[in-house]
Design a protein around this nucleic acid. Structure first.
Lengths: 255, 255
DNA sequence: CGTATACTTGACCTCCATCAACTGTTGTGG
DNA sequence: CCACAACAGTTGATGGAGGTCAAGTATACG
């Protein structure tokens, strides 16, 4: 069923992503293309990084989804951030940094070893200026998604949150070319979506039903379709983040 | 009333803070001590940085409080992060970065121009290694506070949120020596606290009442007192963040 | 003093959580 | 190829946490 794993497990996705942020030269592209998958494929629920663990090597998500998460003592879980194909994680600009959250796969996932990349930007920054730029811009986007999460959880209703998140995911996927126009593959369970949005599973389900009933979305067998993108944008008060003054990544955001 | 402004408007607070994170040498201390207040004092509600604005110079909060915030179209406001004395803001490790949130003062505030510092760590990193370290650790803490905000808003009850936030603020202030044992100055209105916690003013008020009734805290004329820190910690499920493998800043956290 | 702002309290109601049962849907092994 | 777990999604009933509206009381400030 999961077609994601098929053509997508190469580092091309990273190339596509970082090229959005800065125009990379030949030697920079070579660095990215040297990134290889670490192993066949990880099962859902695999721990990529544990809270409290030293972050001593950086990785790329080549295919599949993961998330950064933390649990309360009684088992309630908050998902902080989704990690999707093309996303970097575990890359910190300082030695001895410790992971503040757990990072766990949500689907089958192929991980790439990005230590070549982190090496390049941390120790050979002068040689790879655009790569450095692109990685920083990537980090800025991460912060933007985190802020969006907080805005949703803190100040939006369930209905608004869901609309807002759907648009954000669509936008992020379109940045790496993983959105087909107004639809995209969203291989997450409702439980996961609920934990990201700070809602109960039941109420998330009802909210999705409502959006379907109103003809805003269709969401079946892991494919999300935006039927009324403009109305969704209105309902969720979604705005695309602007993180840098130069070369904004313009996603294919048709009306 | 606000004693904060009196002895505290020098860059000593930054020295105290960054020294927690790394042991600074003489020339590094000199950099910090060269930081001077920008102007007399800003009034509450002054905009320090606007969303969408280029972040071209870094600043330090020398005295007073500010916050990073964003508003929804209909006026609902979410406060993402508090900026308290000794905190850096507007410092980004890349040129052309754009602010993702508004930054606004919440009290009278004295700001220091930290461009000497950002210059040192961005362009003369080799000469100021511990300063670089300390600033990165500082940034890691910022992320930790942001994650805490999200955990609270997403998965905790009002009662838990308030307890958790109070402990976090106490911890942060004790890191810069602004906590007197179990009490600290908290010059924020309930509206501000509510906007940070994703609660209504009325409900925040009732929750504070409850904590008072139970003898957990006292909070009067901007002074917060932790009467039962252990019980609060239990109620809010608060844990101190661990962001680096070396030289953790150990706050004076007596039982 | 008087006015604006912050805080407090009561009444009411709604949004969302919880509990529980039921219905697909996947995937596995007989 | 079917049986049956195991899991994901759906639906109903119910209650409670927290929002909203409104009015009141402190507190600060000019």
């Amino acid at each position: 069923m999961n077609k994601i794993n098929h053509p997508g497990s190469s580092s091309e996705i990273l190339v596509r992503r970082l090229s959005r942020y800065a125009s990379l030269n030949q030697s920079e592209l070579e660095v990215l293309r040297a990134i290889a998958p670490l192993q066949e494929s990880l099962a859902p629920g695999s721990e990529l990084l544990a809270e409290g663990e030293l972050m001593d090597n950086s990785r790329v998500m080549l295919s599949g989804w993961a998330c950064r998460t933390r649990m309360l003592a009684d088992g309630r879980r908050q998902i902080f951030e989704f990690i999707m194909p093309g996303d970097l994680y575990g890359l910190c600009h300082r030695p001895q940094a410790i992971a503040l959250t757990n990072t766990v796969t949500l689907t089958n996932a192929v991980i790439g070893d990005a230590s070549i990349l982190s090496d390049a930007i941390l120790h050979k920054a002068a040689k790879y200026p655009n790569l450095v730029d692109a990685c920083y811009i990537s980090a800025s986007y991460s912060e933007a998604w985190l802020l969006n999460q907080l805005l949703r959880a803190g100040r939006q209703s369930a209905y608004e949150r869901v609309a807002h998140l759907i648009l954000e995911l669509h936008y992020r996927l379109s940045l790496v070319g993983l959105a087909n126009g107004k639809s995209f593959s969203l291989p997450l369970t409702q439980e996961v979506l609920a934990d990201a949005l700070g809602l109960s599973i039941v109420h998330l389900n009802r909210t999705l039903q409502q959006l379907r009933r109103e003809g805003m979305i269709s969401f079946k067998s892991s494919v999300m379709h935006l039927l009324k993108p403009e109305a969704l944008k209105e309902a969720g008060d979604f705005r695309m983040p602007v993180v840098t003054a130069h070369r904004q990544g313009n996603a294919e955001h048709a009306a």
